[in-house]
Design a protein around this nucleic acid. Structure first.
Lengths: 97, 97
DNA sequence: TAATTATATTATAATATTAGAATGTTTGCA
DNA sequence: TGCAAACATTCTAATATTATAATATAATTA
């Protein structure tokens, strides 16, 4: 329906359009974390964490690996995300238009 | 309800979470445009263009000035937006996680 | 193999977003 | 003043997102 170039870009932004998902990404910038780690760090219940992780996974922002009973999530491209988030806080006005 | 730091960031990403709004921003990177310019460049009807511009305005991404009968919209911080968009297309995989 | 731990999925209700139609407002000009 | 152009707002129906509760699955351990 829409130009796929802009659709791809908006899909990525959409993945980060919820505060919980931004917080998840911020935590993952410090290293990989499993779901129960997230559940403690962020004040959100377990199914909701899974839902948000699923959105991030679909958008290609994160991936995971199994470690025993746990699933460890990590950023697929931490360098670029760090860059994008840094370029947003360069000034006080985060809106960045 | 959520940490305001992450809320601010997600609000910005949310502003760019629709393909039409990304396209609007892409066009505005080439200079300011009025609503009827947009309406021609993008295949979207007038009220819908106004709605999307309103979302971008609320998020602080764009502002406008009156020029006769027209309203000319422009990016409030084109440099930063250019930077963010550039850092997204550095690799083929736009997801950038 | 049964129980437990860790995580995912499904269902549901509430809310938000979106496109498009209809209507309203503002500006400039005849 | 009356009209047309440019843009915004409101309304509505369709769809999407979200949080929570309930349930299911997968891996480990007793």
């Amino acid at each position: 329906m829409y130009n796929s170039k802009y659709r791809e870009i908006s899909d990525f932004f959409n993945a980060l359009s919820h505060p919980v998902r931004v917080e998840i990404v911020a935590e993952l910038l410090n290293g990989q974390k499993c779901v129960s780690d997230m559940r403690e760090l962020i004040k959100v219940n377990q199914p909701n964490v899974s839902q948000h992780l699923s959105v991030l996974k679909s958008a290609g922002v994160v991936d995971w690996e199994q470690t025993g009973k746990r699933k460890c999530y990590f950023l697929k491209n931490p360098a670029r995300l760090r860059k994008i988030l840094n370029s947003m806080k360069e000034k006080k006005n985060v809106s960045g238009g």
